[in-house]
């Protein structure tokens, strides 16, 4: 009774308290980003003389250009741009393929139950809890046998296999809330297995597709371990390049370049989140599909 009918005054006070806490949290999260941003626009001298959170004396974009095109990552000094494209070439197919397979698996598990489909799903779920480290060696052996070692295709394959556990889970949980009667009606209308998937289920899956794409994009783009283990010199993703860049020590540490490179590496995930983020919350909270 008490909590549901709070008076205006209490409400106001409580609200300010909540805002206060939220603002504090936001500050804690935003401060590092702020430091990164201002540092990336500072000159080397500026960094050494000024304080961590002071604004640049003079705003320069030299370190951004260096990070993109000339900074040294190990033996080569061509910046991170090549690796950025490596990552794009890896992440786009990996995300699309794993999302599609997940949708298909989810459809089969939820709408065409077969003998052992529950067991199949449980094993799939188990895949979500497998630590990366566990699969490193067997996967390397497999890629070698397939002739895909050190290639982007190999990396895509690894990410697809690892990601399918999650995407299947997402789609299965979404489709389980789609009434079975929809599928029955389509069967009576004469639609077959694939038509039902294409014409009925996929068109109503937009929210969960968005969730899956964000999830997969973020985890594949940010992955370091698979990237460093399975990529060759010319297929290394940006996370590996970033690590090499930061660890390459030639005289003075160029924090401004490091920061710029780190921000560049984070931009695509931010972009995806801004574009599709509103579906993320919506897709995760969506109950059944409205008829």
């Amino acid at each position: 009774m008490h909590s549901s009918s709070t008076s205006q005054g209490e409400n106001g006070l409580g609200r300010w308290l909540i805002y206060g806490v939220l603002a504090l949290m936001a500050l804690v999260y935003l401060l590092p980003l702020f430091v990164m941003l201002v540092t990336s626009f500072k000159t080397g001298t500026d960094i050494r003389t000024g304080s961590l959170i002071s604004l640049p004396q003079e705003w320069v974009t030299d370190s951004w250009q260096a990070a993109w095109g000339t900074a040294c990552t190990g033996v080569t000094c061509d910046g991170i741009k090549g690796y950025f494209w490596n990552s794009i070439k890896m992440v786009v197919p990996a995300v699309l393929i794993s999302t599609f397979i997940g949708a298909f698996n989810g459809y089969v598990i939820s709408k065409w139950r077969f003998k052992g489909s529950d067991l199949f799903f449980s094993l799939m779920l188990f895949g979500c809890f497998l630590p990366f480290q566990l699969v490193l060696l067997p996967m390397a052996a497999m890629l070698g046998k397939l002739g895909l070692a050190n290639t982007t295709t190999g990396l895509v394959l690894v990410h697809v296999i690892y990601g399918v556990a999650f995407t299947t889970l997402f789609f299965r949980n979404y489709y389980i809330n789609v009434p079975d009667e929809l599928v029955k009606a389509a069967k009576l209308d004469g639609a077959g297995f694939f038509t039902i998937f294409w014409a009925i289920l996929l068109p109503i899956s937009k929210p969960i597709i968005m969730v899956t794409i964000i999830w997969q994009f973020t985890s594949i783009w940010n992955d370091f371990l698979f990237g460093v283990v399975y990529s060759g010199a010319d297929s290394q993703p940006i996370t590996v390049a970033l690590n090499n860049l930061v660890n390459t020590s030639t005289g003075v540490k160029a924090y401004n370049v490091d920061m710029a490179a780190a921000i560049i590496a984070a931009l695509p995930t931010l972009f995806v989140y801004f574009v599709a983020g509103k579906y993320f919350v919506r897709g995760l909270t969506a109950g059944s599909v409205k008829g």
Partner: peptide, 19 residues
């Protein structure tokens, strides 16, 4: 198979294709 029986069914939840 259902499609070859030439039967139509109306469900309690209507089951209209939402898209």
């Amino acid at each position: 198979a259902p499609k070859d029986r030439d039967i139509a069914m109306v469900f309690q939840s209507y089951a209209l294709y939402p898209n």
